[in-house]
Amino acid sequence: MGIPYKIFLCFCLCLATLPYAAKAEDSSVDNASNDLRQSREKAVQVVTACDGRKKVIVEGCQEGEAMPEQKARKVAELLMTLMEFCEDEIIAKLPKTGMFIQLSVNGMPYVTVGDTEEIPLILVHGGKAHTEREKKIWAAEMNRMITEGYALFHSPGLGKNGISCDMCHPDASNTHPETYPKYQTQMNKAVLLRDMINWCIENPMEGDKLAEDDQKMKAVEAYIISARAGKKLEPGKH
């Protein structure tokens, strides 16, 4: 999504705000709607997305006044994020200064978010941010799975001839999980990463292959995928 597109979107959004004043009169009387009603009294400008369900109240900017370009971009980005994510009615307040945005989903009380990237997290949780406890659990459990995979990957236990995965794949190099499904000439068919893991277990490592739903298989996959995340992909070379 290039900058010209964003500028175009800004322009559309500005057009969309014109009939706003009339609509605002009909709004219901919850907190967020009160904000909208007061919009003309305060120095705010309200920008509505083309679906009519997402609105941004831009503080420190008069109705009809041309926003500074940076601000306009911010508004456009915010509206796009909101529109991409859900169908709900959302009102966002963009403060005059500072980075905190306030969001009200379907008339619920406002929640504060630091950045547009946090918005999806807020929205899935019905307006509540994840707690530190939740985040710690998730990280620990994910790491447990990866660590289990790391241990399997680095020990000869998956095979029977003393060979382990890391002997050919230090740091999971040459595994390229992002390239599957693909045709593997060793099996002469299109396969998934887990098929190749099993092939390696049976062939170079001379062991017994794992069931596809074996926790060990999942763990090995978890390690490989996490170790290779963000690595450069060069089609034709893998």
């Binding site: 000439t185 060793q186 099996m187 002469n188 068919k189 049976e202 062939n203 292959k209």
Partner: peptide, 22 residues
């Protein structure tokens, strides 16, 4: 044929090319 006996790597078989040779 596809597993322990290690045949299929050279005696290639798939629906597109079902002739058992690479």
């Amino acid at each position: 044929f596809q597993g322990k006996a290690r045949c299929i790597t050279c005696h290639e078989f798939n629906r597109s090319y079902p002739f058992f040779t690479n």
